[in-house]
Amino acid sequence: MLWVLGGLIVGVIAGATRGTFIDRALMILSLIGVSIPVFWLGEVANLLTQSRWHDTWLFSWVPPLGYIPLTKDPWGWFKALVIPWFTLATLYVGLYGRVLRASLIEMMQEDFIRTARAKGIGERRVLLHHGLRTSLVAFVTMFGLDFGALVGGGALLTEVVFGLQGVGKLTYEALQTLDLPMILATVIYASFFVVMANFVVDVVFVFIDPEGSRCPLTLPFSSSRVSPYPSAATRGWCGLWQASRLPSSSGRSSVSSVSPVPAKARPCWPSWG
């Protein structure tokens, strides 16, 4: 989760200080982080922490390369993984920070932001409560896909460089020996987590997307009512539920028997104030 926290901090600070020296400095650092290959950064980290500066007070606590089980030594597990964590997060912090900054700047120019400012709401509340929340849609989408890919073995280079036993290193060893059954198993394993991540992202959208937190038209029991939502997935489970009850091409409802309750707009989930 380091890259999520780092991306949020970088994106919010850069978006709030648009055009200033802080904004330019953060964007330059983000671009450097995105441009650095993970395997090269890992090798440099190993060179400094395992060889050159290992005897100094700065990195004397770093254990040898390899994985230490959490149940065996929790503190040793943390020390063995903290350097790989930061190495892997460097790329994503820069990428997520740049995406969040662009989305935040775009959202801060919308009409609802000007309305919030006209009502006398403080700039910090406008930025964090209104601007940031609506800007998290792209952020959450990227996080869901990247997290699913990493859990499924996307951290292959990091695991190989630091000697960590994981799905990525298992895939690397299978590729070296052309172990086709193992390669197929790891690909299916990774695909499962990518699909599950997409599912979780669609559910989370109901709570963070203002357009998806309230159904524009609910319970279309009458055949004369037509649902206007473009995507049931992004509108939440209420959209999926209503889409199953839309009139078919023959003019009849897809549900065999429904009670004649008048169609009425109502929220699917509690609305954000």
Rank of each mutant, 00 (worst) to 15 (best):
E106V: 14
R114K: 10
G97W: 05
T87Q: 12
I113E: 09
F86I: 13
M108N: 06
V93P: 05
I83A: 01
L95Q: 09
V93I: 13
Y92W: 10
S103N: 13
I105C: 11
L95K: 01
M107N: 15
W85I: 06
Q109G: 12
I83F: 00
A102C: 08
V93M: 05
I83Q: 01
L100K: 07
S103D: 15
E110F: 11
L104R: 11
E106N: 14
L81D: 02
S103W: 10
I105T: 08
V99P: 03
L81H: 05
I105S: 09
Q109L: 14
M107C: 13
G94L: 05
D111I: 07
Y96N: 04
R114Y: 07
P84S: 04
V99Q: 14
Y96P: 05
F112P: 14
Q109R: 13
L100C: 07
T90W: 06
A116M: 08
A89L: 01
M108I: 11
I113V: 12
A102Y: 12
L88D: 14
T90V: 06
M108H: 09
A116C: 11
T90L: 08
L88P: 09
Y92K: 08
A89V: 00
S103E: 15
T115F: 01
E106S: 15
V93T: 13
I83W: 00
D111E: 08
R114L: 04
Y96V: 11
T87E: 11
R101W: 03
V93C: 03
G97R: 00
Y96M: 10
L91P: 09
G97F: 00
V99W: 00
A89S: 00
I105R: 06
F86N: 03
Y92D: 11
F112M: 14
Y92E: 08
V82H: 03
L104Q: 12
A116K: 02
P84N: 06
R101G: 11
Y96D: 05
L81F: 01
I113D: 01
G94W: 06
L81N: 02
V93S: 12
V82S: 03
L104E: 15
L91M: 14
V82F: 07
M107L: 10
M107W: 13
L95W: 08
L100R: 11
A80Y: 01
L100I: 05
R101S: 07
L88S: 09
I83T: 00
P84I: 01
V93F: 00
T115V: 07
E110S: 11
A89W: 02
Q109C: 13
R114G: 02
Y96H: 07
T90I: 04
L88M: 15
M108E: 10
Q109S: 05
T115P: 06
W85Q: 10
R101T: 12
Y96T: 08
G94K: 05
W85A: 07
L91F: 15
G94M: 06
L104N: 12
L104W: 14
L88V: 09
V93Y: 09
V99K: 07
V99C: 07
M107P: 05
L91Y: 14
V99D: 06
L81S: 10
L81Q: 01
S103K: 15
I83N: 05
I113M: 03
M108T: 02
